[in-house]
């Protein structure tokens, strides 16, 4: 039972990740590798706010979202000019800078969470408290799973509303042909900044839930591998519509569990899991470039 609840908690986190990345890949037509950075921003902001300031779940998550929205300008402003390969590289450098910051904002002589040792570097932040909403401690696996799924549903409603609104239509038009959209008087740059802000804020929520669930984070939360995992969800499930990312999150959650049931030794299992992701990426590009349930083909 607790195993199932564990899976459900992760499912909620994965779904939020995939849905938020879908806004960037499927509706802005840009491949970003910096998304794990924003996930980690949410995690770190939550951890520090609860550990150092003693904030509850909602304000701490809100802080993470706010910081992530602000920092989303680091990828959305360059996207005024960069498309395709150049944007991938730019997002990669943003990701590397995030990682570098989390890894290096460290001073062994100080307590973690102070200005000179904000992130505790490679050792990460431990003992992050379980979330408390309106004074109710969510310390059982069941309540954690409920929180995670409820957040996923909330994010789902949010993105459904937004993407089926005229704003979503504007994003699609911009993705199809930005110059034509601008010729119709549309401020595509503003729309893209908004889209990135929403996507990055959303993934920060996932980061906060993750931090509160595992109660320990380190710079690897922001690693390139984490970005690639999120990318795989959207590529495999499909981008450009609502159901694609859900399918992707489910599949990428199911693969490691299937391997676990296949009784493969622990060391090989992690490699096999990643190999399966890699293989899926290749197969998708060959046989279903729009993903299993998506609408949009990567340019």
């Amino acid at each position: 039972m607790s195993y199932l609840l564990h899976l459900l908690t992760y499912l909620g986190i994965y779904v939020i990740m995939a849905m938020s990345l879908n806004i960037i890949i499927g509706y802005c037509g840009l491949l970003t590798l910096a998304h794990a950075g924003y996930f980690a921003v949410g995690s770190y902001a939550y951890a520090l706010a609860t550990l150092k300031l003693g904030w509850g779940f909602l304000p701490a998550t809100g802080l993470g979202v706010g910081v992530a929205v602000l920092l989303s300008l680091a990828v959305s402003l360059p996207a005024w000019r960069f498309k395709g390969d150049s944007f991938v590289l730019l997002s990669l450098s943003v990701q590397a800078l995030f990682f570098s910051l989390f890894y290096n904002w460290f001073d062994a002589s100080e307590e973690p969470g102070t200005w000179t040792n904000l992130t505790n570097g490679p050792f990460g932040l431990a003992n992050i408290p379980r979330p408390a909403i309106l004074g109710i401690e969510l310390d059982t696996p069941g309540s954690m799973a409920a929180l995670s799924l409820a957040s996923a549903v909330a994010c789902g409603i949010l993105s459904w509303r937004l993407l089926s609104s005229p704003w979503g239509r504007l994003l699609k038009a911009m993705r199809d042909d930005e110059l034509a959209a601008r010729g119709l008087g549309k401020n595509t740059r503003l729309a893209r900044v908004q889209a990135f802000a929403i996507a990055c804020g959303m993934v920060a929520v996932a980061g906060a839930i993750y931090a509160s669930y595992v109660s320990y984070i380190d710079p690897n939360t922001a690693s390139l591998d984490a970005s690639i995992l999120m990318l795989s969800m959207v590529i495999v499930g499909g981008a450009g519509n609502f159901r694609g990312p859900l399918v992707g999150a489910l599949i990428l959650l199911a693969i490691p569990e299937a391997l676990r049931f296949a009784q493969i030794p622990q060391a090989a299992a992690s490699s096999l899991r990643l190999m399966a992701y890699g293989l899926l990426l290749i197969l998708m590009m060959h046989f279903r470039p729009q993903g299993l349930a998506g609408d949009y083909r990567i340019e």
Binding site: L31, D85, V88, I228, L231, I235, L274, M275, Y277, G278, L279, L280, L281, I282, M284, M285, H286, I298
Partner: peptide, 10 residues
């Protein structure tokens, strides 16, 4: 690019 990334992982 994505297929090549997949090949790298494999």
């Amino acid at each position: 690019l994505i297929a090549s990334l997949g090949a790298y992982i494999v």
